[in-house]
Design a protein around this nucleic acid. Structure first.
Lengths: 237, 237
DNA sequence: CAGTGGTCTAGACCACGCT
DNA sequence: GCGTGGTCTAGACCACTGA
């Protein structure tokens, strides 16, 4: 069972998704929702905050909460989405090839990225992602070994996140992403079907556990024509 | 004067920025902060929520609020940042050239992007942004004329957002961004110093007013080597 | 003016971490 | 068991909107 406010959020979100509440319409007032759900106003407000953060409604002081048109927001969400989830949503067939899996010590670059000690033991994984027959993405992952004692090719073939969260019981709390374009390296050219492109889009991902430890640094290198990112940003975040 | 919780947020953020509270340290507990700021716990919690949403702290149930290391987060923020603000933060000299400014009617593409009526009257502005002597970004903006009755070259030269918000009194509430890489068009080549690059990074920006009206569609076309984006994503957003 | 959402309060109980 | 943050309540006053 979820929180009360989360339950209310999900119900209202579903009603909007199902077309029971149409864009442009107003939701019942907070006062009315309080009675509808037999709860307090602050709880209703938390649910409405979630709806507005997910682009379902917009709250306007003095007027009410207006249902938004999410039809233009239908691309897989920004935020922390694993490659596997993303591919699944796109309905594409994805094949992962593990090119290397080894224990290393942090070099200067990784020490800086992970903010860890010099020589800190790390897992280094290099994987290529093939979509519809073409190698499109090169994933280079670095984990603190301390948190991930065992790692096998099979796990890397599947989803490392799933292993980390479900099997190891670690909780990922948030991630910072950084994106830029740079020249393709020899490694990119070796593992990706770059066609004639000599640039790649690099997405750097810094992943934190719920104990505030930065435990993973990932670099995803995308063939430029297949890259896409969506961000849904509220003002004054 | 701001809200109480916003004031508390800003004070704590400043203390962290100034190094008075160091990464890894814990903030005082919510109970202690309640007494420190002579306020209620929910108000403190709103301030802490802001801190955690901006990457200043991480809250851990049963333990406390830990100050994070924001030193790797120092690049200008994701979200709705106008070009002018961004350039200002970077401390660069920026020159804007207005290449065209005209009233048009929505064509099929713009009708789709803005979700407006066919033939809806729009402003169309094309501007190039020169940073340190090089034309790096081509901005193509389309506004609903209904909301922006007058637009002059001088306003476009300066900041359209400032004009819209300060002079017209409209409030921008949020934006959706979409990013991808594509081949440079003739227009890109004409207005940008693309060197040998034949790709551009396109950022599509959908801007909403606080009355839930989508009133602007902007396409920013960046020279790939000068493009950079940072996203700070909490889980389950 | 009545009705809306925005802020704030002072309490309560719960789930979790640590010792 | 104690202190932490997470949820929830029932009220209050304010700022804004629209008739």
């Amino acid at each position: 069972m979820l929180n009360k406010y989360d339950t209310i959020y999900q119900q209202l979100a579903k009603e909007i998704d199902d077309g029971k509440r149409l864009p442009g319409e107003k939701l019942p007032s907070e006062h009315e929702l309080t009675e509808l759900f037999a709860t307090s106003r602050e709880t209703i407000r938390k649910a409405l905050k979630l709806l507005s953060e997910h682009g379902y409604i917009q709250k306007i002081r003095g007027k009410g909460s207006i249902v938004l048109d999410r039809s233009t927001f239908d691309f897989p969400v920004s935020g922390l989405v694993s490659f596997k989830e993303l591919a699944h949503k796109l309905g594409d067939d994805v094949i992962t090839t593990v090119h290397s899996l080894q224990k290393i010590s942090a070099n200067d670059f990784l020490q800086k990225q992970l903010g860890c000690d010099a020589e800190e033991p790390l897992w280094a994984v290099v994987r290529a992602r093939k979509i519809s027959g073409e190698s499109i993405i090169l994933d280079k992952d670095y984990f603190l070994e301390e948190y991930v004692p065992n790692l096998t090719k099979e796990i890397c073939q599947d989803s490392i996140y799933e292993y980390v969260e479900k099997t190891l019981g670690l909780t990922i709390s948030f991630a910072k992403k950084e994106m830029f374009v740079t020249e393709a390296t020899e490694e990119d050219k070796q593992y990706l079907d770059l066609q004639n492109y000599d640039l790649v889009v690099v997405v750097r991902n810094y992943v934190y556990l719920d104990n505030a430890v930065l435990f993973e640094y990932t670099e995803s290198r995308h063939r430029p024509d297949k890259f896409r990112f969506v961000d849904f940003a509220r003002r004054n975040r």
